[in-house]
Design a protein around this nucleic acid. Structure first.
Lengths: 218, 218
DNA sequence: GTTGATAATAAGGTCAGCCATAATATTATT
DNA sequence: AATAATATTATGGCTGACCTTATTATCAAC
């Protein structure tokens, strides 16, 4: 593998792309939004990544990871999610905060540390947010589910994963018991892409569609 | 406490100062050397730190940490050394590498994580390099020892700590069994500040004076 | 096909932390 | 007191990743 030192920013872009879409191109604007930068800045950065061969940007069509980029992104996700496991299972850090904390640690983690951590944790398959942890070779089984926002009204589904990254969003979902493993009944969907009414753990909660998109269910 | 976000660079400078001297001013050139930057760059940075009230720089006299700077440095050292414990005791990372790896992690560690880590590790008092781990309030008992380079010929001492930070230096010392807890006999000191001849674990080793300065013994 | 929204590009600016080179200041030594 | 060695300051430059404010392309919808 090529072990050139990648900047923290590069890692964040690749990770965001991997999280936003397994394969289809992502609009630069969406990327900018998730990373909290202006579309112009994201565009610049995407150019740089394109030149490095990490992404392929087709103007007006979106950005996608190249093979090389996807490999690196897998590696970043592996580190990220292993740390999430450690923080949650061993340090008892609050669920909503682990993404944020793991994210910082991830950038600072040498390969030796990553693998030693995997051994220590006994090679977990998923992180506390329900997402799969890529193997060392980059492989992992994608989640077999769909966003809660697309679930049928009246059905009862099981949350598989929560794909949000912002701590306040995670906190909001945690408070409403929308966590991996929980059963969720879709009681009602307001018209015109309005919020969903759900029943979770016996309680009714109302959830905006954009938040529901973060929740992967089956 | 003031929780302004300090840059990685700032943390490195404060840490280096804390490691180089508990109290007496340190020459800017020495600081530059340890941090691997040019004296001019170190000077600039020292100016910035002075303006922030973290150090006090008396031209031609040296730099020293202020109270505020020392507090932050303690915090940084705490994080650094807690990670060293984790990496060594739980991840079984090679002794010579833990400083380097812990250093990266340190910068990326939130206070909540630091304290959770301290609990997880059961509040260790020293790191694997033998250095004390500051308490949350910044207090710690300084090492009661002196550099090996100042030990008397013929005496037998015990290594308390190894203050080196560069991985290759640590590796060199590790290979010669110069590790915290080991007994060291000073067999001979070459004239004109030449190298020391030591007996460690039954074997004779020759050690340059500048390396011997890193080893704190009693 | 024209138009309005969205996407992309261009141009110029900021900031931290480094760099080199050159000019001064200070200290220490003779 | 002169000088050599060392410290400091001055100046100007670079880089990555961001920013704002135009301007120009393209797509999608009527």
């Amino acid at each position: 593998m090529n072990e050139k030192p990648l900047s923290e920013s590069t890692e964040m872009y690749l990770k965001a792309l991997a999280e936003l879409s397994a394969r289809e191109p992502v609009a630069v604007a969406r990327l900018a939004e998730r990373l909290g930068v202006t579309p112009v800045s994201a565009n610049e950065m995407v150019h740089r990544l394109d030149e490095q061969g990490l992404v392929s940007h087709k103007p007006y069509k979106g950005v996608a990871l190249t093979k090389k980029g996807r490999e690196i992104a897998s590696d970043v996700l592996r580190r990220q999610r292993l740390w999430e496991c450690f923080l949650f299972d061993h340090l008892n850090i609050e669920w909503a905060q682990i993404y944020e904390f793991a994210c910082s640690l991830e950038h600072a983690t040498a390969p030796e540390v990553t693998e030693a951590l995997a051994v220590f944790l006994n090679h977990p398959k998923t992180c506390p947010r329900g997402n799969p942890i890529p193997e060392q070779d980059g492989s992992f089984e994608p989640l077999n589910g769909a966003p809660l926002s697309e679930a049928e009204v009246g059905s009862v589904v099981t949350a598989l994963a929560v794909n949000a990254t912002a701590t306040d969003v995670l906190k909001y979902l945690q408070e409403r018991n929308i966590l991996p493993g929980r059963e969720i009944e879709i009681v009602e969907a307001a018209p015109m892409r309005g919020p969903l009414t759900l029943r979770v753990e016996g309680k009714e909660v109302v959830l905006g569609l954009s938040l529901a998109e973060f929740v992967i269910v089956k």
